[in-house]
Structures are given as C-alpha cells and as structure tokens.
Design a binder for these strands. Sequence first.
RNA 1: GCCGGGGUGGGGUAGGUGGUUAUCCUACGGGACUGUGGAUCCCGCGACUCGGGUUCGAAUCUCGGCCCCGGCCCCA
Length: 430
Amino acid sequence: MEIQKPRGTRDFLFNEMKERKGVEITMRRIFETYGYGEIKTPVFEELSLFTTKSGEGIKDQIYHFQDKGGRDLALRPELTAPVARMYIKELQKTTKPVKMYYFGSCFRYERPQAGRWRQFWQFGCELIGGKSPGSEAEVISMAAHCLEELGLEDFEIHIGNLGILRNILKDANIQGNLQDQVMGVIDKGDVKELISLLENIDVDDNSRELLLKLIEMKGNSSIVKDVEALINCSEHACNALFELEELLESLEAFGFSNYVVNLGIARGLDYYTGTVFEIYVHGLGAQKQISGGGTYNLIEIFGGENVESTGFAFGFDRVMDALKKQEKFIEAKSSVDVFVTPIKSDLKLKAFDIAQKLRKNGISTDVDLVGKKLKKILSYADTLGINYVVLVGAMDIEEGNVTVKDMLTGEQEKVKIENIVDFLEHKLGN
RNA sequence: GCCGGGGUGGGGUAGGUGGUUAUCCUACGGGACUGUGGAUCCCGCGACUCGGGUUCGAAUCUCGGCCCCGGCCCCA
C-alpha cells in the first residue's frame, strides 16, 4: 500500500529547493539590510490566539486539535498573531521601534487550488512601535526592493488608507459591525453587492455616491488631490488623507514611486487602522496577490499596551510562482563539480582519499562508492552536467598522477596528485 | 463546503466505440567492453488511483472514495 502525502502539501526536490533557498537568502539579505532581526515562533499555538484575533469562525479554516493534556491547540494559520503574542511576553519594554522578520510555514484547512496550499510559507516582518508615514514608507520600499532584487517584473503595489473610508462611514453613521461588513464588501471589490448593501442600510445619497466614487479611485499620487476635492473635509477623513499624502512623500524620498494609490483596498480584517497595501502579479490565476500588509493595532487585542505596528508578509510560494511564470530561474546545474572514480575498483581507497582532499578544499565532489562501471559513471556525469571527472588508474598512480577529463570537450590531462586541488580550482575559476 | 476537468511503470506518454502478453521515450540494473568504455546495440526491471457495479470478459462503461488541476467561497 502506497502512503500518500496529505492533501494540499508538497515535496520539494533538489532543483526546487535550490530556487526556494535562493529567494529566501535574497529576502533575508534585504530585510537585514533594513535593520530587521530574525525571530522564530512555534509552529503550533493555543487555539485561542487565533480565535481571539479572527473570531470563532476561523476554526473552520485551521488545523486544530487537543493534545494529550487536553489543551486546545492549532497549527498556525498565519504569523502576525504569534509574533504579537511573543512581543507582549518578551519585548514590550524594549526600545522602539522593534524590527523583526520571520520565515516559516503556516497551515490552513482549505480547498487547495492554484497558489493555495494547506501548508504554505510566509516571509514577512513587523515594525512595532513608532508608527509614522516614514515607517510605512520604509516597509513598502523594502517590499519593493526585495522584488526588484529578485528580478520580478510587472508587480503592482497598491496603497490605500482605511482611515478615509472608515471616517466617511462613521460620518454617515455607519459604525461597529455594520461598518466592518461594509469594509468587507469593499475589500471583495463587488460593487453590485456594495450598492445593494448600502441601500439596505439606508445610507444618504451623498455618502453613497462618495463611497462609490472613492473605491474606484486608482492612480498615482495626483489622485490624492482629487480625493481631497471630493470629500468635503470632514476632519477625520481629511487627517487620514494627509497621512496618506505624507506617506507618498516619504516613499518618494525612499526612491520608490511605482505604486498605485487605490482607496478600494480594505483588507477585511478589522484590526487594520490606517495605511494598507497589497502587491499583485497578474497572470497567476485567482491568487494574484503575493503580499499584503499595513498598519494595525493588534497588540492591544491580546492584552498588551496600545502600540501600533506596521507589517506585511510575502506569500512565499506565490512569489515563487510569479518568478517561475516569468522564467526568472536559470536551469539549475548539478551541485557537484567533480566526480572522482577509480578506473578499476582496486584503487577505490585512493579515489576516496583524493575526493576528500578536494572536499576539504571546498570543491564539491562526488566519488564512486559502489564500484560502478566507468561507462556508467561517465554517463552519469554527462547527464548531471558534472564538469570534470578525475580518473584514478594504476599506471598514472605509479607516476604520481591522475587523469582529469573535461566532460565538455572530452580532453584529458595528466595532473600530479599534489597539484590536483590547485588544478581544479583554477579550472573551476575559484 | 460547492462547480468543472483529470489520474496508465520513477518522470513523460500511446491505447479508450470492452476481447491474447498494454505502446513508445527517458531514467534505472546487467551485458557486448578487465585503462578511454559518455555513442551504439542487446537483455532486464517497472504501470492502468482505490473500492463496488454491469459483463463470459473492464485501463476502457457505471457509481462512490482518495488525490491532482482550474474556478466559487475565503484567503497568502
């Protein structure tokens, strides 16, 4: 009986892991360049951590279970809540802002489809304390910086501000749950549903028209002025607008201006307070969003002090999909540069010795361990793209030599054993 | 949870209106070939997603499960 892997999970083989590793390393490098330090939290947490944040309904979407002590636990469906939990316990009294990043897998019990898995990876960060347009601008610039560094093209960063919408709703006397409901529909981008919802809850015509116009507003920084003209500056909504304006100014200074201001971004979650942003790559099917984030007040929900943070996460697997779609990976070659083999198996110990000498000098080397035929080894080296084969034969050894075969040209050269490391290092361009 | 399309050796595939031993490529093991042998040739290994039904007979028709692909919901 064959055992299958659980639904919605994947095995990653050598080439794919190499690509993922490459992206991971790039992201780490960039995040650290911006002064973020890595943290790691447990893969499972108390179930209540997630229900507190997202409501009881979240249970349908997460893997949860009781352990042998009867504790209600859950595999983490995301990393923001665990990081907030950790912050409250460990970091609340450290100097602000706290800048941290994380990379880890999350789990959701959902129907798998393109870009959606039951185990998936998030690479993200939180900047806790020190809320300011500058912080937000830095975070957004860093996200863009990562994608540029990875060579990703045609990504769109959409920036919005929830304060504007929420304050207009508030002025129209739509508050509490109802407001969240409206924001949820806006987030979906379903205009029809929004219109019928607004009719149901009897919003005055002016506010309705205003909302419908605002969520359609997309463009460069100039639309801020348009928005300003549109809203009759109810004080709060205008403050939020100034906040957005300041953010865009800061972004300019950070050297990133290729964004789309999009007031229709609402991010259904109600703990977001001000700036929000999402990154899309088209051509990824239904799951075109590769990243999302913004400024929120989550710490307080978990009983910490009132401190706002800004954060975002890349859907790591979706970034990989996007890069693959754009063919950003060069066909990965063998990770081994040299294969050492005895011509006859009586010299296998000598081959081990030479292989080890190469390895200790940092040359990635494979050696025949089982006495395979020379033909098989050459064929193997050929298919895997190994560059050099070191042939260890009795006649050469008597003279203190081995034969190095260049697999591309087929040329062979006798090399003194004591020079073999230098010779190969030179050939491999180290 | 709902809707559509799928599932044939390790990887990629042919066959599909039921009928001998299921096609081909590749990979893998062995040989021609005990120091030049990466080619070629020969031999070998290895599969019809699982279970029920129809039938003399099912990879093929049918029902259900599992899994994969795409979409809805929701989300990253």
